[in-house]
């Protein structure tokens, strides 16, 4: 398959970036999207050019490293998948594919398609944990959690922190990410004691990092590779109101 690629090239955080055109021939439909970029990088290296920088790690949709805007879609056109799970069979002969880094001021470009997402780590450090010593796994029946609650918490815990929600949001808001972390912990007996302190800390840090505000459009939910639900944002709002009346 023959493809026309328009890829964002940017030398460093403060350098101006622009799109560069690349032509690719003989792309196999069985390749993953990242393998296609690997092949392109090999040809660039052979020609003596600088390869394209992009983030990747596990390549099986769990680590949250890969992060590409593909034709304006975070993680490409498929729903519920990360960039690494996207395959070239999704594209047709002679397609033009526009590849960009995540779009947000709070995620500055490091180089080309790689962005600095440590803002998420700082939000996590502001309360996305429980303050207890972890030891061996406790006896299963010592902490009873209802099935519905555990399912909701588990669904929220599926967030891999890739930042697709921020990239897809027209406001670059990190609400879906923060709400997933808050929802995950606030509903469980281990996380409940610190829920007010946690939500205050995480939301304050989120605002300081320069993410935008939620306007409830739902673009984040559509882009999320782990299908984190919008109702988590409702829960975050509720937690924040609750925290306003808690010491």
């Amino acid at each position: 398959m023959k493809l026309h690629l328009k890829i964002w090239r940017q030398n460093g955080p403060s350098a101006p970036g622009n799109f560069k055109d690349y032509e690719m021939d003989h792309v196999s439909a069985d390749m993953s999207f990242l393998e296609m970029l690997d092949v392109l990088n090999v040809t660039l290296v052979k020609k003596g050019e600088t390869p394209i920088e992009f983030d990747h790690d596990c390549r099986e949709g769990i680590c949250g490293s890969c992060a590409l805007m593909i034709n304006g879609n975070a993680h490409g056109p498929d729903t519920g998948t990360a960039t690494c799970q996207l395959h070239m069979r999704r594209f047709k002969e002679n397609d033009t594919i526009v590849i960009e880094p995540w779009r947000a001021k709070a995620f500055p470009v490091i180089k080309d398609l790689a962005t600095d997402r440590t803002a998420f780590d700082r939000i996590m450090a502001a309360g996305g944990y429980i303050s207890v010593n972890t030891g061996n796994a406790p006896e299963a029946n010592s902490n009873l959690v209802g099935k519905d609650t555990s399912e909701r918490a588990m669904d929220a815990a599926a967030c891999i922190g890739c930042g697709a929600c921020v990239a897809a949001c027209k406001n670059s808001s990190a609400m879906l990410f923060v709400s997933a972390k808050v929802s995950h912990l606030a509903q469980l007996p281990q996380g409940a004691p610190e829920r007010a302190k946690r939500v205050r800390g995480m939301v304050t840090q989120m605002d300081q990092e320069g993410f935008g505000n939620c306007s409830n459009t739902g673009a984040c939910e559509a882009a999320c590779p782990k299908e984190i639900k919008l109702e988590n944002i409702t829960r975050l709002n509720r937690e924040m109101v609750r925290a306003a009346f808690t010491e």
Binding site: N73, A104, A168, S172, F211, G212
Partner: peptide, 27 residues
């Protein structure tokens, strides 16, 4: 205004108009 500042698209980057986009009215 804060949201606009948080977005920061380069001039050559178009606002997304794609399969996964939100409903028109909400945008």
């Amino acid at each position: 205004l804060e949201n606009k500042k948080a977005r920061a698209l380069a001039p050559s980057q178009k606002p997304s108009n794609c399969e996964k986009d939100a409903r028109l009215g909400s945008r």
